[in-house]
Design a protein around this nucleic acid. Structure first.
Lengths: 142, 142
DNA sequence: AGCACTGGTTACCATTTCCATACTATGTTA
DNA sequence: TAACATAGTATGGAAATGGTAACCAGTGCT
């Protein structure tokens, strides 16, 4: 008698998706464009994830407020990441010619869509991070 | 009359999750441990994602084979990433004292679980990467 | 016997990215 | 007059990253 749990089912689904994604790949002839390498990796680094999540929660944020939430980021890197995320279509930059200048950042619809996906991953990690920390500790002892 | 699409529904769901995740956060007193900063970011960089996805597709891989699939990675970084991913519990390292030495890497159940989540993100990006590329191009013209 | 070869990893140095700090512009406030 | 505010840029040093070469110890070739 076989037991098929929903976890098993998900792994079968995942296997299918992986097959679709990698099944045809010949490592001697890598494709010219790889979505994970060339696109996802530009928006899945630590800082970009945090920026996008905070903009998911607060619809509008200005530079310095964002910097406070994404604590630890430097001006340069924040500025750089914001430019990159804007040019990739995740967020918009709206500048008001006031004094002092005011610049507002907010997610595009595409960015909101990305948050939907990202949040699933971060939520999972929030639940599972204790396991990781426990494992890391166990590993250090060895 | 209001129209509520499933996309709207998902964004409402996301908003709830974000609220749960960030609603209590006071940026003047950041928490000591942040799952995104301290755990996820160690397994969501470009190389780790690729390593984990390939190990999701090929149940067992040895160092050099992995290096061929994750083309472009240096020995040093691959070695380092594998160690980190092992210590965080995503994969196991099995060494055979043969000559030449043989080392096999495979995902743990936890790692397989992570792939399930990761694949949803990469799949989404695979579908949407053309939009990003298009946007990037449009942005350069400006 | 000498020598190249193997696979996984480390050592070394050059390059790139990163962070902290100071600084810019302009007008308002004390 | 000095301090403050905003949204950054400039700078110098620290840290991460990349490429290349070396290492081990046994095996097969000459």
């Amino acid at each position: 008698m076989e037991m098929v749990t929903s976890a098993d089912n998900q792994q079968i689904e995942t296997a299918k998706k992986l097959k679709k994604m990698f099944g045809h790949i010949d490592y001697k002839n890598p494709p010219e464009m790889c979505p994970v390498r060339d696109v996802l990796s530009l928006a899945s680094d630590k800082w970009s994830i945090l920026i996008i999540l905070y903009l998911g929660f607060f619809p509008v944020l200005r530079f310095n407020k964002l910097k406070k939430y994404v604590y630890g980021i430097s001006n340069k890197v924040l500025s750089e990441r914001l430019k990159a995320l804007e040019s990739d279509g995740y967020l918009t930059r709206r500048m008001y010619a006031e004094v002092p200048i005011r610049v507002e950042y907010r997610l595009t619809n595409f960015g909101k869509n990305y948050v939907d996906k990202l949040i699933e991953l971060t939520e999972w990690m929030q639940i599972n991070s204790p396991k990781v920390l426990k494992n890391k500790k166990k590993f250090q002892v060895k």
